[in-house]
Amino acid sequence: MRVGDALPPLEIEVTRTLIVAGAIASRDYQDVHHDAELARQKGSPDIFMNILTTNGLVGRYITDCLGPDAVLRKVAIRLGAPNYPGDTMVLTGSVEEVAGDTATVRVVGANGIGRHVTGTVTVTLPPGGAR
């Protein structure tokens, strides 16, 4: 793994089911993540994905790409354009830094309206490098 390497993109279909399942699995019962009518009353066009789900998907993306022996050390994300139902988010990553067995990967999740998430993930790689 070298600086500048790109990870294969991961497409996530942002379904209503994913948004609700992610919110409940993360124990986030804010109405804007499951109740479209209340979300609209709060000025949002629809329900939208919660940050914990985005965080979980970013973590999954990294270990999907680098293998189950890769250990997440740090995940830092910032949200931009919301993930609404019916959209597709494409996660892409590029290696920003490699120091010994530790790599820092820059991750971007783009959806139909912009960048949903930008962030960096620091990950320790198994001996012998990523699979």
Partner: peptide, 13 residues
């Protein structure tokens, strides 16, 4: 398990 199902995360770890 519920989290992994929601995220589609099949990491055996």
């Amino acid at each position: 398990r519920h989290w992994c199902e929601a995220m589609g995360d099949t990491n055996p770890a």
